[in-house]
Structure formats: C-alpha cells, structure tokens
Design a protein around this nucleic acid. Structure first.
Lengths: 202, 202
DNA sequence: TGAATACTTGACCGACCGGTCGACTCATCG
DNA sequence: CGATGAGTCGACCGGTCGGTCAAGTATTCA
C-alpha cells in the first residue's frame, strides 16, 4: 500500500532522537523539519505547536518502552528480582550503544525532559509525571511478587518501588554527567538494596 | 566603603535564581540584566559570554554549598550516619520553602544543569561533574567513618557514596516532576539502605 | 590637575526562534 | 469530468537571541 504518508512518523522519530540527544529548548522546529525532510507548513499541519509535538514524542516513546525492553524486563517468566538486573543491563547497553555512536551519553529522555521543562510547562510536567508513575507501578508489582515468593523480607513495596525508580534516574543522571555508561553498571545493581519499611501504624 | 560596585554580584545572584527556578536555555541574558538592573554592556564587561556566567554561577553556588548546609550536614560533631538524615532534611526544607514561595519545586541546580547542558557543552559538563565528584567524596568520608566506628558493616565506601549521591539526585528529580517536596521526605531516608559491597579480588 | 583605568550606557547587529498563511499538488470519490 | 480535502510547500511575520560597540561617566593615582 504505502499510500499513507509517513511524514508524521518521520517528524516524530526525528524529534525524539534530537530531543533525546540534545534537549527540548536546544532543538528548533526548523531543525527537526530539515532532518525529517519536511517543510514547516507540513509540520504545523500535523502538530499544533512544539509543545504538542513534545507530548506526542513522550507518548510515542512511552509506548515503545512499554512494549519494548520494559516489557521484556518485567516479563513474568523472570524471577521478580532478576527483572531489575535485566533493566539495569538494558539501560547500560542502550546508553553504551548511544555513546559509541554519538560520543555522548544521552541519558533518559524522560528524566532529561522532566528537569528541563517541569518548572515552566505544567502540561508536559504532568505527562512526564504520569510516565514515571506508570514505570514505578511496574516496579511495585515485581516487588509485591518478590515479597509473596519470600525472596525479600516484607517492606513498603509501593514506596520502595518509587525509591528504585528514583535511584535508576539518579544513576543515569550521574552517568550522563560523567559521560560514562559504566557508571550504570557499577552503581545500578545496588537498586536491589534499597528498602523502605512499612511504617507501623497505630 | 561601598566604593566597589556590586554589579557583578547582582548579576551572579540573579542568574543563579533564574537558572535554578527555570533553566539555562530558558533564561536570556537580557532578562538577567533586567532583573539585576544592569545594562547589557555592563554584563559583558564582567562576563565574556553566557557560558562564562554559568561557570561562575556554578562555582558560586558550589562555594555556598560547601560553606553552608553541606558543611553543617557533614559536621564532624554529628554521627556519620546522622549526617545523611540532616542532608535529606535540609534538602526537604529548602525545596519546600522554594515551592511555597514560587509555587514550583526548582530541584537541584546542579542536577538540572547537568541534564540540560552536558550533551552540548563539554566545559560545563566537566565542571558539573567536578561538583558531583566533590559532593560524593564528602559522602565517602562519612561512610568510611561509619565503618570505622562499626555503625555499618564494611562495604565499598567509595562506590556506595556515589550511589547515595545518585539516589539523592534521583529523589529530587522525581519530587520535582511531581512538584511535591514531600517525596524528598518519604524517599530520602532510604539513602542509608544503599549498599555496594567490596568486590572480592583475586 | 591630568591621564589612565574601571565601569556604565543603550543603540545596534545578524541570526534565529516558533508560528502563520495562501498557493499548490494530488489521490479519492460521486 | 468536477469537487473535495488531506497533505505539501516555502516565503514571510514579529519577536527574541547572544553578543558588539562607540561613547560617556566615575574613580584612582601621579
């Protein structure tokens, strides 16, 4: 068939790469259009604004994640705690591949965007927050499972899941600042040592 | 005396606040000049470029930190592990105060800048990396002390120190994305549960 | 007093920003 | 065939960007 134009997809993919590799503010609509081989007018035919594009990029990437290596990592066939190792590994190899290719570690698109835009764009902030929430609930599930199976001592699985996500983002932040994916591999595995105990109520 | 102009200091302080509250790219030289009540020309009398200003802002803030609440947190009079609680507390109150004042959680200036600029400005990246390195060596010292005093079981103090810093940055990232300082308080204390064991060599 | 130096002023520069718009192509369908 | 509408094109808009500069003022020191 191929009768449906792939223009929108080209814009989306180009924007994702550029936003990830640099930053939201640093990448202009014009540049995106050039790389995507699209004219300005076509761009604004598909997206109402740069912010609108960013929303689409986040959705797009979140989908790819959910169906991609996150789905693999949180595969029910893996032992719950092994999933975290898988996740760290995947993050490491991805960052390493990107660095080998472009010379710089791009870090996590969501983390990058979150710190860059969340003080000035409430809509994007909320969307990124939702992405993080969804991610942490995956962690949550696995922790619950690990507790049920007796692989780890009982704890506040929901809060610990958030802590683990925070740690992962922090590790990637540090690795990016050092421009060295190895940091992910050395610090990453400690994610499983994080523990927040249930607060005993009444 | 007061014969020495405070223009440079005004620029520095204004830039710090604006960069911290928004972002590097989002704040222009013109805007900084307006808030600081300084003319463009004067700005470029003291700083050769916006990047040069950013370097000065980072130095400035790192100094304030080192002599401010970081110095307090890592006061030798405190028990080594208590210092981490102090640090988390300080981070929480600071972020909360900022949010109450401006409505938005600014997060960590260094973390913000690191993710924003480190893929496109090698000089700034290196400087931010140095700041993180210095911070993690403070953590390192305290961990060594805690091990020596038998407060915690022996571990790889240097790597664990890095992990703790990563966690702190990650927690602040998540809190900023949720625009809720309470996240710092709920997740923060788990920093002490992070452990990276010494790898047994030979 | 006069010269040197530190600082300030604000107009100005070219480049670029996100976004608009009217003209155009072209596949689809009646 | 003629009509419709999605998609494409690229010139153009006002505004802002980081940065420059010639001219002026204030301070210091001889």
């Amino acid at each position: 068939m191929n009768h449906v134009s792939d223009t929108k997809a080209r814009i989306l993919n180009t924007a994702r790469e550029l936003f990830h590799g640099r930053s939201y503010a640093d990448v202009g609509v014009k540049e995106i259009c050039e790389f995507a081989k699209v004219q300005k007018g076509s761009f604004y035919h598909f997206f109402t604004s740069k912010q609108d594009l960013a929303m689409a990029v986040i959705d797009d990437m979140a989908d790819d994640w959910a169906n991609g290596f996150v789905a693999e990592a949180f595969d029910k066939k893996l032992q719950p705690l092994e999933r975290f190792d898988y996740l760290i590994d995947a993050a490491y190899y991805w960052q390493k591949a990107a660095k080998d290719l472009e010379g710089r570690m791009p870090g996590c698109l969501f983390g990058n965007l979150a710190l860059e835009v969340s003080t000035r764009d409430e809509v994007l902030r909320a969307k990124l927050n939702a992405v993080f929430h969804k991610a942490s609930s995956q962690f949550h599930e696995s922790l619950d499972e690990a507790v049920d199976l007796g692989h780890i001592a009982p704890l506040d699985t929901e809060t610990t899941a958030q802590a683990m996500l925070a740690y992962l983002e922090g590790v990637i932040l540090l690795a990016k600042t050092r421009n060295d994916p190895e940091v992910v591999r050395t610090l990453g595995p400690a994610i499983k040592t994080l523990r927040i105990d249930k607060t005993i109520e009444k």
